[in-house]
Nucleic acid binder design. Sequence first.
RNA 1: GGGUAGGUUGAGCAGGUGGUGAGCUCCGCUGACUGUAGAUCAGCCGUCUUCGACUGUGGGGGUUCGAUUCCCUCCCUGCCCA
Length: 384
Amino acid sequence: MTAPISFTSRPTGTGRSRLGTLTTPHGTIETPQFMPVGTQATVKSLTPGDLRAAGAQIILANAYHLSLRPGHDRIARLGGLHRFMGWDGPILSDSGGFQVFSLAHLGRVDEDGVTFASHLDGSEQRLTPERVMEIQEALGSDIAMAFDQLVEATLPPSDVADAMRRTHRWAKRCLAARTRPDQALFGIVQGGVDPDLRRESVAAVAALPFDGIAIGGLSVGESKTQMAATLDVVADALADDPRVRYLMGVGSPPDFFAAVERGIDLFDCVLPTRVARNGQLWTSHGRLNLRNARFLDDPDPPDPACACETCRNHSRAYLAHLFRAEELLAYRLSSLHNVTYTQDLMRRIRRALDDGSFGTLREAVTAQYGSAGARTDKPAVTDR
RNA sequence: GGGUAGGUUGAGCAGGUGGUGAGCUCCGCUGACUGUAGAUCAGCCGUCUUCGACUGUGGGGGUUCGAUUCCCUCCCUGCCCA
């Protein structure tokens, strides 16, 4: 059978960075690329038209959430996730592995899978690698993710290693369970921030016939320095592996630079949309919190350098008012801007990789957002 | 004019029948947020020299060791009657 996706890339000469093209059943995307997160078959407050206008080329949805509501079988009966949500571009579905982590207190992990109390109604739910593949195939996403176990990188090494090796066993089961020739499947590298464990994980995952390699378990409490060091280890271990590399759950504007120069092609993160709903806009002046009193009389657009619908038509003062009044438009206008900003940033990164100005761009953005990110090397929870 | 219920920190309240009223919800201020149980959460929100201290229960006066509480008087508000 023909491969469900194809990825071609070339090194740029800037660190380990690459410029690439990823072709999926629902279209081609340029890499490095950012995927807005649409957990429940919607990028909160935005229509597919908004996403297109913002420059989004691929979005992420979540198998766990959609299996609980409205149900993956129902989505399948309604023609699949693309038709259901009205987005005809590529979709990557997350497996629910992150929920094993974020909802850990609601469930327990065993060798075969995970038993959950649904966060919606408390009903018992069972996720296994086979079940997760069944859900994602019913959704019909372009790219499915293997079911993994993510743990705090700061746990004892033996715990991190246990979860990592279970992830490897589940990876093989996911591959064995797949039946759709038109859906790609990515494996996930785990191993916390331990270089040896990360190397072991890359060796195990890269040996399997996945269509892409994801790096999980980062941006969950470790420092920026640890994340960069871990990405270096992974990039070394992947060496000349030609497959697309996806860093899960990252990130902020400074994070993109740290990861791209270490060979990352794909990102997803809730940050742009979540912080937007909480009043924080990403701009060429850095972060603006539009709930701050100083914006109530500010007639300027959120970002004078931005051409999105929000910045073309509305002032900071108007946004500040909408947030205070808890008007729904606040969430849409802010999310639309932040997704646009993030897509613009990725486009600028791609252009800079092409013309050799990556370092210059990184310095400019770092000046706006602070070195190494907003909060540098905050101590890990268990360091105390 | 008579009766009645009230007056507590921006708003709305709780509490307090003589022994230290800074408690709640809004509003407001600031911060956080990284494969979304998040249009959420946290801190602050009388003053100060802020791990504490001080002031504050409509105004004035009185009784008392001590008054938000008891007494006198005045002011203001709601409702009922005339």
